[in-house]
């Protein structure tokens, strides 16, 4: 008798909490706002120029990306009939290395850049983060979306910015966040699916790019000047190179993460 009434009280409190919390937070199940999954392009003409950086990242003779299993969540496993890889070291047959984050590390001090009006989208699709590596500007809206018919927790683990961990139990859910400090990198993880990881750079400016599956990257609309360019890879660390940008010209750089190799600019 006593136990039954206690259970009812507990259930009642829980119900109130569910109803109370249901609409709260900045979590929304509503369909997407305008969100742009491409790295943010330079917005206004203010602190931009017409210089361009093009380049390529390599990792020659490396081990191929390890295969992972998603059996810990049958829904995730069912979304991948074929092999799934860690996405840590993504190389093609020629050793072109994807997911290298390239950005202007120094040379832009004292300049300010408008915050893009478009949101940056981090999607959870097939129980993987898309994109695996990306960048966002300080103050720019970040939308994290759950496109999977399973639940995820979105756990950002920055050092300078504020850590957060939010659940997305249902497909189509989105959460919004803005980072208020520059930081390379902010790791994202899902504690439900231990293989899920993403890295997001937070920068004061829009001059960054991520190498494609062909290993190529580009940065546009740079003002003329001397810069230090850094390339970051989650397994291989960082490399830097100095470049001089002239208006209207294209500087070509390459980063080689193979053992013993280095960066070069030409």
């Amino acid at each position: 008798m006593k136990k039954i009434s206690l259970l009812m009280v507990f259930a009642l409190i829980a119900t109130v909490l569910v109803v109370g919390c249901g609409g709260g937070g900045d979590q929304a199940a509503a369909p997407a706002q305008q969100a742009d999954s491409a790295p943010a392009a330079a917005p206004g003409p203010a602190a931009t120029g017409s210089g361009t950086i093009e380049g390529n990242a390599k990792y020659i003779n490396g081990d191929p990306d390890a295969v992972i299993g998603m059996d810990a969540d049958p829904v995730c496993a069912s979304l991948h009939p074929g092999e799934v890889h860690t996405e840590k070291v993504v190389i093609d047959d020629d050793g072109n290395l994807a997911n290298v984050f390239v950005y202007v590390k120094s040379g832009l001090e004292g300049k300010s850049f408008p915050v893009p009006g478009t949101a940056h989208m981090l999607d959870q699709m097939g129980c993987q983060y898309k994109p695996h590596v990306s960048g966002v500007q300080v103050g720019q809206k970040l939308v994290v979306r759950n496109s999977d018919p399973t639940l995820h927790n979105v756990h950002a683990r920055p050092k300078s910015n504020k850590e957060f961990n939010q659940g997305q139990p249902f497909q189509g859910m989105e959460l919004e966040h803005t980072f208020d400090k520059a930081e390379v990198m902010v790791p994202f993880k899902c504690d439900v699916h231990p293989w899920m990881s993403s890295y997001m750079a937070v920068l004061e400016h829009p001059f960054f790019g991520v190498s494609s599956e062909q290993g190529s990257f580009g940065i546009e609309n740079l003002p003329a000047g001397d810069y230090v360019l850094e390339a970051w890879h989650e397994e291989f660390g960082t490399q830097t190179v100095e470049v001089t940008i002239v208006d209207g010209d294209t500087a070509v750089v390459s980063f080689d993460f193979s053992p013993g190799a280095t960066a070069s600019a030409g």
């Binding site: 829980a14 909490l17 249901g22 639940l151 927790n153 659940g167 139990p169 504690d191 439900v192």
Partner: peptide, 26 residues
């Protein structure tokens, strides 16, 4: 290492029981 796989407390994903909780290891 599943301690944060349910990010909220005392509810779980805002609910008493999150969907398919018994199927997902963590």
């Amino acid at each position: 290492e599943a301690g944060l796989s349910v990010p909220d407390w005392p509810l779980s994903y805002g609910m008493l029981n999150p969907p398919r909780w018994w199927q997902i290891e963590n």
